[in-house]
């Protein structure tokens, strides 16, 4: 006796809808220009994403992003997440996607200085805002003090959570240069590390805080 439930159509409804999103941007989004210039106000008004009250998408949405201080123009779908745009069109694969539902923090980037999950942020919502990723932490070959402390304190194991962990810590240190351990714990409460590197993350942030206290 065949089961004629709706789930019998090869795949469940969920699997279709759910997976139809995965990595959509990787192929669809394209990076058209790159500029080291700081974005000028008002210039973004030419892109589709900057238009107001007009219907845009689903495909071919031009978008200006300021990523790590450089202005980048990408073309995305409306459904393209910021994580997909960064990892796909912009090839900034430091930002990781591990749960794709905002539960693990591997995709954490700073948006106007605040840590957010780039997997639950639409790329269009980052238009005209400052995006900072792990690739923007070092100045050329010179590591930031936070990165240096992560190296020295062995605050990485497999390293997959590291970019998100770093961005949450940076978000904290930018607001609070000398956080207590409790504040560090709270700041990375949304960053899952399956290797259990947390004690060394706490030590690394404390080391940065201590050096700031001295200087």
């Amino acid at each position: 006796m065949a089961d004629h439930s709706k789930r019998d159509k090869g795949l469940s409804r969920r699997s279709f809808l759910r997976s139809a999103s995965a990595g959509a941007a990787a192929a669809a989004a394209a990076c058209s220009t790159t500029s080291k210039n700081k974005p000028k106000s008002g210039k973004g008004a030419t892109t589709a994403a900057a238009q107001r009250d007009a219907v845009i998408g689903p495909q071919g949405v031009a978008l200006e992003l300021e990523v790590n201080g450089a202005k980048r123009t990408v073309t995305v779908e409306t459904r393209t997440t910021l994580a997909e745009a960064l990892r796909g069109a912009l090839d900034l694969t430091g930002t990781k996607v591990a749960c794709d539902r905002g539960a693990c923090g591997a995709c954490t980037v700073l948006l106007d200085g605040a840590p957010v999950c780039s997997c639950l942020t639409l790329a269009v919502d980052a238009a005209g805002r400052r995006v900072q990723t792990v690739e923007g932490l070092a100045a050329g070959d010179k590591l930031s003090p936070l990165q240096q402390a992560f190296v020295e304190c062995d605050a990485t194991q497999c390293g997959y959570c590291t970019p998100g962990m770093l961005m949450s810590c940076k978000g904290l240190l930018d607001r609070n240069p000398r956080p207590s351990e409790a504040e560090v714990r709270a700041a990375v409460a949304g960053n899952l590390c399956r290797c259990g590197t947390y004690p060394h993350v706490f030590a690394a942030v404390a080391r940065v805080g201590a050096s700031k206290a001295k200087g």
Binding site: M1, A2, D3, D8, K9, G10, L11, S15, F16, S19, A20, S21, A22, G23, A24, A26, A27, A28
Partner: peptide, 17 residues
């Protein structure tokens, strides 16, 4: 793309008993 692959999966028909 992953999107096309996912849409293709939805077009597969599996008969189960």
């Amino acid at each position: 793309s992953e999107d096309v692959a996912a849409r293709a999966l939805a077009l597969c028909k599996v008969s189960y008993k």
